[in-house]
């Protein structure tokens, strides 16, 4: 697809999003958008840099708590709370990233997972975070005099934030910076020998990804009015991996598709099957790894290329 066609497609997508609350319960779409943003941020690392972070819940959860605390205890305006959450995610990302990029591949995944567990225990034990209960009753606040307690008003705020960050991620991927990240993913030793400071690029990608994951967490807190330990649990880290994998890692729309499927699946099943949801999630993982590694969007693209008789990858 060339650039013009794809911008037309994005404009259509944006228009559909604006119209969607007429047909679908807005809270569900907002939830999907929060996780889609989370997954897009994650995909920036896994799909475009080749780094598997198994601890991304710490940014989602950490910022969810930070924003919740800022809105409740410090009574910051909503937008400032969201900005603080994003910044907090980025700062935490810088700290974690500096440690994690000291190890590669499989160890990187284990280090991020362990650091996320550390974060989880910190949230569990700190006084501000409400322990097992989490933060409850976070106010949505208002924006330019509009009351965000109205689902429809909040919806448009979230759509705008999501679209802006999606655009930002797009631009990042296409920029020289994004091309370098892909070069690192394809062949790290070669990128090093070409003179790139690979660690710096990895760290920057990590910080960006963590900051945007933080924004997703902050939006989630504003949306639901609470932040809980679930947001920071390793299960959530696993879920974002699955969303990206299922949707198609390294594709632009894959994470959105994956988040849509997983969030809908959960809201459909959660009350009906209990802990079988975990089993289903597990089977999805196995299925994706064994036979569906390109994901929904990746398979779609491959199918399209086969249809027009081109070889894909």
């Amino acid at each position: 697809m060339n650039a013009r066609k794809s911008s037309i497609a994005y404009v259509i997508g944006f228009a559909l999003l604006l119209a969607a609350p007429a047909a679908i319960y807005p809270v569900l779409i907002m939830k999907v958008l929060c996780f889609a943003l989370f997954a897009c941020a994650f995909n920036l690392l896994l799909g475009y840099t080749g780094l598997l972070s198994f601890g991304h819940a710490m940014f989602l959860g950490g910022s969810a708590y930070l924003t919740g605390h800022a809105l409740t205890a410090w009574e910051l305006p909503t937008l400032a709370g969201l900005a603080l959450g994003t910044l907090g995610g980025a700062v935490l990302g810088a700290l974690v990233g500096m440690l994690a990029i000291r190890r590669q591949g499989i160890y990187f995944a284990m280090v991020t997972l362990a650091l996320a567990q550390l974060m989880y225990f910190v949230l569990l034990q700190s006084s501000f975070s409400g322990g097992e209960n989490g933060l409850q009753g976070v106010p949505r606040g208002s924006l330019f005099g509009l009351d965000l307690a109205n689902d429809y008003i909040l919806y448009y705020l979230i759509v705008v934030l999501f679209s802006l960050t999606f655009w930002l991620i797009q631009r990042t991927i296409q920029s020289p910076f994004g091309q370098t990240l892909k070069a690192i993913r394809e062949n790290e030793p070669r990128a090093i020998s070409l003179g790139y400071d690979v660690d710096r690029y990895k760290l920057l990608a990590f910080v960006l990804s963590a900051g945007l994951a933080g924004l997703a967490g902050s939006m989630k807190t504003v949306l639901f009015g609470f932040a809980t330990l679930t947001d920071a649990h390793w299960n959530t880290s696993g879920e974002v991996v699955l969303m990206t994998l299922l949707g198609g890692m390294g594709t632009v729309l894959g994470p959105i598709a994956g988040a849509t499927v997983i969030v809908s699946l959960h809201s459909e099943l959660a009350d009906k099957v209990g802990s079988l949801v975990t089993v289903i999630t597990g089977f999805l993982f196995v299925f994706c790894v064994l036979v569906f590694r390109r994901g929904i969007v990746g398979e779609g693209i491959a199918l399209y290329h086969r249809m027009i008789g081109e070889k894909y990858r």
Partner: peptide, 26 residues
């Protein structure tokens, strides 16, 4: 998956862990 990137091994066994853990809880 032996010929794939080792990260897939982590993801696959993560799936297995979820199946076993969730199954026992169920």
């Amino acid at each position: 998956i032996y010929k794939l990137d080792p990260l897939y091994g982590l993801l696959l066994t993560f799936g297995v862990a979820l199946i076993i853990g969730g199954g026992f809880r169920y």
